[in-house]
C-alpha cells in the first residue's frame, strides 16, 4: 500500500518537478557557470574556462548603475506603499457594491498590456505631449525642459506600472481587517493618525511585506521602462544585461551581470523572510493585544 502511494505521489509530482528542474533550476545555476566561459566570435559560448569576464565586471561605470538601480527601485517601492495603503484602506471601508467597482478599476490597469501602459506615458511626456504643454502653460516648465528620458520619468512610470501590484495585497488584508479595532482605539483616545498607524498598519503588516516584494523585485530587474522613457543617464542594471545580450552579443558578460542581479534580488527576499520569522516568534501582534 505504501509502495503504491509513493508511486502515485511520484506520478503526479514528476512532470512539474522535471520540467522546472530542466527549465528553471538548471538555467539559474547556468547563469553562474557561464560567467567563467569565454564568448565565441559568433555570439555563442566558447569552450574552455576563463576568469576574464569576472575581471571585466569591474567596469568603472557599473557602480553608478547599480546604485541607480537600487535607489530607483527603493523609491518606487516607498511611493507605491504610500499610495497603496490609503487606497486599500479606503476600498475596504466603502460599501460592498461600490467596493467591487473600485476593485474592478484597480484590476483593469493590472491586466492591461504592460507595453501599452508604458507607451501611454511616452506619449504624455513627449515634448509635444499634454503634460509638457500644460506645465509650460502654467509657467511651471520651460519650453526646452525635457520630461522624457530622465530618471524622474523612469520613476514615474515604474510607480504607475507597479501600483496595482501594491494595492491588491493591501486591499485583500484590509478587507479581512476588523475595523472595530480602530473604533475601539478612537474611543480610548487615539487620534485618526494614531489609530491608523498603531492599529491598522500592524494589522496588515504581512500584506505590506508582500507588497514590498512584488514591487521591489520586478523593479530591480526593470529593463523596458528605462529603455523606453529613460535616457543614458537613467540606465539600470537590466539595460546593461540587454545591451550585452543584444548589441554586443557577449553572453558571458551578460550572465555575469545577471548573477549580480540574482544576488541583489536575494537581499530583500532574505530580509522579508527573516523579519517575518522574527515577527512570528516575537510578539508581533502585541500592540493590538494591548489595545483590545
Amino acid at each position: 500500500m505504501t509502495g503504491g502511494r509513493k508511486n502515485g505521489e511520484w506520478a503526479v509530482t514528476a512532470p512539474t518537478f522535471v520540467w522546472l528542474t530542466l527549465l528553471f533550476v538548471i538555467p539559474t545555476f547556468l547563469v553562474f557557470t557561464i560567467v567563467f566561459k569565454p564568448s565565441d566570435p559568433y555570439g555563442g559560448i566558447g569552450s574552455g574556462w576563463t576568469l576574464r569576464t569576472l575581471f571585466s565586471l569591474g567596469n568603472p561605470n557599473y557602480p553608478a548603475i547599480l546604485w541607480r538601480t537600487a535607489w530607483l527601485s527603493a523609491l518606487t517601492t516607498a511611493l507605491c506603499l504610500a499610495l497603496a495603503v490609503p487606497t486599500g484602506y479606503c476600498m475596504a471601508r466603502t460599501d460592498r457594491r461600490f467596493r467591487n467597482t473600485l476593485l474592478l478599476l484597480v484590476i483593469i490597469p493590472f491586466m492591461t498590456s504592460f507595453l501599452v501602459r508604458i507607451f501611454a506615458w511616452k506619449v504624455l511626456l513627449h515634448p509635444e505631449g499634454l503634460i509638457k504643454r500644460g506645465l509650460v502653460l502654467l509657467g511651471l516648465a520651460h519650453s526646452d525642459t525635457s520630461l522624457l528620458y530622465t530618471p524622474g520619468a523612469v520613476l514615474l512610470v515604474m510607480v504607475y506600472t507597479s501600483l496595482p501590484f501594491a494595492i491588491l495585497p493591501v486591499f485583500a488584508a484590509a478587507e479581512k481587517f476588523d475595523f472595530h479595532l480602530i473604533e475601539a482605539a478612537r474611543d480610548l483616545g487615539a487620534t485618526h493618525a494614531g489609530a491608523f498607524f498603531r492599529v491598522f498598519i500592524p494589522g496588515i503588516s504581512r500584506a505590506l511585506f508582500t507588497s514590498v516584494l512584488v514591487v521591489l523585485i520586478p523593479c530591480l530587474g526593470s529593463y523596458v521602462i528605462p529603455d523606453v522613457v529613460g535616457g543614458p543617464n537613467s540606465e539600470m542594471l537590466g539595460n546593461k544585461i540587454a545591451q550585452r545580450t543584444f548589441s554586443d552579443r557577449n553572453l558571458p558578460h551578460a550572465s555575469g551581470l545577471s548573477a549580480i542581479l540574482t544576488l541583489a534580488v536575494l537581499i530583500p527576499m532574505v530580509w522579508v523572510v527573516l523579519s517575518q520569522r522574527k515577527r512570528e516568534t516575537g510578539g508581533g501582534g502585541s500592540i493590538l493585544k494591548d489595545i483590545v
Partner: peptide, 8 residues
C-alpha cells in the same frame, strides 16, 4: 524578475 528568467 522576468529579465533573469529570460536570460537564464
Amino acid at each position: 524578475p522576468e529579465i533573469l528568467m529570460g536570460m537564464s
